[in-house]
Amino acid sequence: MADDARNDLLHGTLDMLVLKTLQLGSMHGWGITELLQRGSEDVLQVGQGSLYPALYRLERQRFIKSSWQTTENKRRARYYALTARGRQRLADERANWARMSHAIEMILHLSST
């Protein structure tokens, strides 16, 4: 039951969430999963099977860019960062999201009176 809820929520919104996390600063893939999980108090658990394809897709669409960098414990990792296009895209998606969730809220609050 809990699993289903997570998947439904993530469907179509993963890109937006990834863009959002990267807005906070450049990050590697594992960092993004961690942040999503912690930030959502363990409600959102992103499977790697979705995360990396999403990252590559976003990179190809030039919303994010990536480069090899060294982590604080001297390990080589692929860091992802937001591009200008990505920033714009995030803004658009946020606006859409806001509109959509507002619309859904309104429907859910319809009373039978």
Partner: peptide, 12 residues
């Protein structure tokens, strides 16, 4: 499985 998925995205 994830590598296939990632590959598809990567290749475009």
């Amino acid at each position: 499985r994830w590598r296939d998925a990632a590959r598809d995205e990567y290749r475009g």
